[in-house]
Write a protein that binds this DNA or RNA. Structure first.
Lengths: 193, 193, 193, 193
DNA sequence: GATGAATGAGTTTTCATTCAT
DNA sequence: AATGAATGAAAACTCATTCAT
């Protein structure tokens, strides 16, 4: 499996840095190769094409989000607490890696519709875990059981995403994690029974 | 003023169609010109460069949103009603013009950071009107006066935007306007005092 | 005759200024028209095309050189004196009009072979008058009667032209007319019997 | 070093031919590439841009002139003999390569001021060697020690250049090298003590 | 005569991908 | 497995010229 060879991760990480530092359209394959310390041609031993690199970047980085969220789901906390921890986790992971934040919030969105659809498919797993929290809360009576799950999920994700994007657009000038309590409060109020 | 000449609007509208039908990167100036029924060079009598077309598209179309919102603000309704009508208006304008919806939610976001910053500057006017509704509601006691205005605004806009984007990504398969009541309910609950 | 209408000369002079200030390739017809205070289309009422403007510029300005030289030829001076006065005149006319000097020595030479051939044809009249001085001097015994007329003419013109071009290239930093005595001395020594 | 790779010289030579045959402005990069038998993109592995090709052409070809002149300077001949051999060499090199003669005398002069200044900088080395001959002759008493070095150099170069350009303009109809004795005689008479 | 809006042909350069070594 | 030289398609923009008013 190519995914486990050292050069695979080496190229993925190089891509994040190259894209964050040069922007999506200025992150040529040759730049990524240089950043990774391999020849241009080597890239094509591990990835089908440039698009494949980008999707793989998102996929690999998404794993962290999903794994953390799965951990949160397994905890014995209330649904509200889980949602709070999910928001904190989302902010924390991105606040901890400016390059990654720039890539996911700004640069990767410059890709074409085809890539965006693939990215959305990867995102789905994360959103399904979010759905689990919401459903659990509705069942337990913590959240409003009459609400539309999809709209609720879009509110939570849309809010968290918008806040993160604005933070990146403002050049990380303030502390993203500090926003968490205010966001949690507002969203929980909207969701609660 | 070029802005009032017929060919100006003609090119703007052609650009929306060309971008919606071909995608951002495949909407060459020559395609826009052909769609507008003018020569390639004519484009440059009305716009400085391709970037200028794109920004102008957003600017011109944004006017509708802003004007409608200003109308809503002037009405004697409660802040909650105003917010509801803002959401309806947002959905209605985009549901009414698939081309425009595709362009604003998907295609224009593929532009580079420079253009995105200019687009954000234009968006600011709209967001400031949203702020006005929120502040008014906080003053009148309708909305929670302790909440963070910025976070509240990002929740409202992020939610509305996410819902619209998902609707476009799903090829307008369902009725966007029908989502409005659920969204209004959820958001208002989060905002109310 | 268009040549005598005020706008004809107006455009010629505008062209010299536009070319001198913007360079040959940056002196678009619209810039020349603006400088002349006429509409772009008006240019084409007086000149067949852009090339025609350039050739006309050279032709009109050459008239001064030729008329002065004809005056010199008519004087009762020795051939050596005439040659000296020709050199002085050449330097004086160009030193007196920096714009014209830039245009004839640098910018007009950037035109293509076709235009350069037409310019050379215009130059011929001037070179024939130079030939007259040389022949007269050879007949009178002042100049070496065994020398090749064409080579002699090319030496005189080549030297004067090279010195003028270098002066323009050096941004007119020194006095061109001051070079005359040295040039006259050197050339006359080479030519004399 | 790219300069020593076979394709570098291949492209330089192709550029000379393409420019000579099509004219400066009609020698598109694609034509040069085709003439060189490489892909358009390959040009850019060896040259920064089109301007870089043109300057490199002049630079590479100038080397021959300079090397020959350095050889002449090292010979034990008199300064007069050296000057004669310099003139012969100048004519010989260009008479031997019609393409090169067309390019240096006509086509390359159509470039813009920026390129022309760079070309002049390259030419400087050649002119400095000419100065060496002149100074040597003045010191040895062969040449007039009172003459202005710069004017003398401009006379020699201006004459040689004018004669070569006229020859090219006349489509190489006569033998350039045959002009040498007449030119040498005339110039030496002007320079001698 | 004068205008100036409209035309549309034409070229440099970039960069993802290949493949011989 | 790894390399990196070579490929060649693709697009924004300029500007001389026209012609309806």
């Amino acid at each position: 499996m190519k995914r486990n060879k050292p050069k695979y991760k080496q190229i993925i990480d190089a891509a994040v840095i190259a894209i964050a530092e040069n922007g999506y359209h200025q992150a040529q394959v040759s730049k990524i190769a240089k950043q990774a310390g391999v020849a241009d041609g080597t890239i094509y031993l591990y990835f089908k094409n440039k698009e494949d690199i980008l999707i793989s970047v998102f996929q690999e980085k998404m794993v962290v989000f999903v794994e953390n969220l799965q951990e949160i789901l397994k905890s014995g906390e209330t649904s509200s607490e889980k949602l709070c921890r999910m928001i904190e986790n989302h902010f924390a992971v991105l606040a901890n890696d400016y390059h990654l934040a720039t890539v996911t919030q700004l640069e990767l969105r410059q890709s074409n519709k085809e890539i965006r659809l693939k990215i959305n498919a990867i995102l789905k797993e994360y959103l399904q875990l979010l759905d689990e929290i919401l459903i659990e809360g509705m069942v337990s009576g913590e959240f409003n059981s009459a609400m539309d799950i999809r709209v609720a999920r879009q509110m939570v994700f849309g809010t968290v995403d918008e806040i993160t994007t604005t933070w990146v657009m403002n050049d990380y000038r303030y502390d993203l994690l500090e926003q968490a309590p205010k966001v949690q409060q507002l969203l929980l109020k909207g969701l609660k029974a």
